[in-house]
Amino acid sequence: MALGPHAAFILASYGAAAAVLAGLIGWLVVDGQRQRKALDALEARGVKRRSRGA
């Protein structure tokens, strides 16, 4: 698979795409885990929504 004289630019483009998308995916996964953990911790402490009326 020869990429010709401009191989560096092609690889840089695909590298940039991989980096940006990996960053996005990583951020979403980590953020999801963090929210899930926070929610579990709150629920474990017995906090419920709409406790105002009680």
């Binding site: 929210q35 929610l39 709150l42 906090v47 929504r49």
Partner: peptide, 9 residues
Amino acid sequence: RVKALRMAE
């Protein structure tokens, strides 16, 4: 949800 629960707490 987390935010709402924290407020409730």
